[in-house]
């Protein structure tokens, strides 16, 4: 006997449709379609008008003409500025990610070893700065790194240096800024992973003759890989497109693609050019974003299946 479709049944599926449909539609309209438009406009030509780009399609003499303008992409290839920008963005983001990992892992490890009530407090202290203001935390480093800033003043005062070290507006300042701003995003996923580890595994390892160091490298580290990957992606992907940090802490020669996109858009008012920069950046980030989603989705689906 099959169930007749009852009003309650209908209401239930209608309700479910609404609950998943509304956010789906919102994200489709405000997250997916915008990318399609970016792609479209990256093939347009810049013009001085409102809006400042040409239409791809024109309709004249009963003919629909679609003109794809590849010059924006050719420009990206031909001007060393962009190519260098991409390379240096990936390099800066990559090195910063590794630095975050080297600094963040021991912190996450230490927090996971604290007694439970202290753990929550420590965790909160890690997150707290990121609830204040990104901009202001970057701004704080300007005062520290300037030629007449606190670090230089202190070093000069101690007689360790004779003339101020140039730190602000150098790549070093950008590294410091990224590590400082994104460190919590590395610590959190690693901590979440480590805190779930069964401590008896380490006891078993040492019972079987492993030294604490060997137990760490053979048991703890391999088990925390998923936390490391998640944390690294959370740092790497946004860093590649970072704008505020290179703008405030980097120098004119610190090329980063987020900054190039910004100036292409706001200063040169070349919208198609900026779109092409964005499209290439997105293509570059597809692999890391997919890795991130794999690790995220594994979590989400493991539960939905049971």
């Amino acid at each position: 006997m099959t169930n007749p479709v009852r009003p309650a049944q209908f209401l239930k599926s209608f309700g479910r449709g609404l609950v998943s449909g509304i956010p789906y539609f919102w994200l489709l309209l405000f997250f997916v379609i915008p990318f399609v438009i970016v792609l479209k406009i990256s093939f347009a030509e810049s013009q001085i008008a409102q809006p400042p780009f040409t239409d791809l399609t024109s309709f004249a003499d009963d003919m629909l003409t679609i003109s794809l303008n590849l010059f924006n992409y050719i420009d990206l290839y031909e001007y060393d500025l962009y190519l260098d920008g991409y390379i240096s963005s990936v390099k800066i983001a990559g090195i910063s990610t590794i630095l975050c990992l080297l600094i963040g892992y021991p912190i996450a490890y230490a927090i996971a070893k604290l007694p439970p009530h202290a753990r929550n407090l420590a965790l909160m202290l890690v997150i707290l700065p990121s609830w204040t203001s990104f901009l202001i935390r970057i701004y704080a480093w300007i005062g520290l790194l300037k030629n007449n800033g606190l670090i230089n003043n202190a070093l000069l005062g101690l007689g360790l240096i004779d003339e101020p070290l140039v730190m602000l507006h150098t790549p070093i300042a950008v590294y410091i800024g990224i590590v400082y701003a994104y460190l919590p995003f590395m610590i959190l996923p690693i901590y979440t992973n480590l805190v779930k580890h069964d401590h008896t595994l380490l006891e078993a390892a040492s019972d079987l003759g492993a030294t604490p160091a060997a137990a760490f490298f053979k048991v703890t580290l391999p088990l925390s890989v998923s936390g490391i990957v998640a944390g690294s992606m959370l740092v790497f992907i946004p860093s590649v497109g970072e704008f505020v940090i290179p703008e405030l802490l980097g120098g004119p020669d610190t090329l980063m693609i987020g900054k190039l996109l910004w100036s292409e858009f706001f200063n040169a008012r070349n919208w198609p050019g900026a779109s092409a920069v964005a499209v290439v950046m997105l293509i570059m980030l597809i692999i890391p974003i997919t890795i991130f989603q794999r690790y995220q989705a594994k979590d989400l689906e493991a539960i939905a299946d049971d």
Binding site: I237, G258, L261, Q293, A297
Partner: peptide, 23 residues
């Protein structure tokens, strides 16, 4: 759906900003 939900977590802000403006 899951992809659309989690992607904004890591999407560089300049891309999100530009794409929404163009929309």
């Amino acid at each position: 759906f899951t992809g659309m939900i989690t992607a904004p977590l890591v999407m560089p802000e300049v891309i999100t900003g530009l794409s929404l403006l163009l929309l």
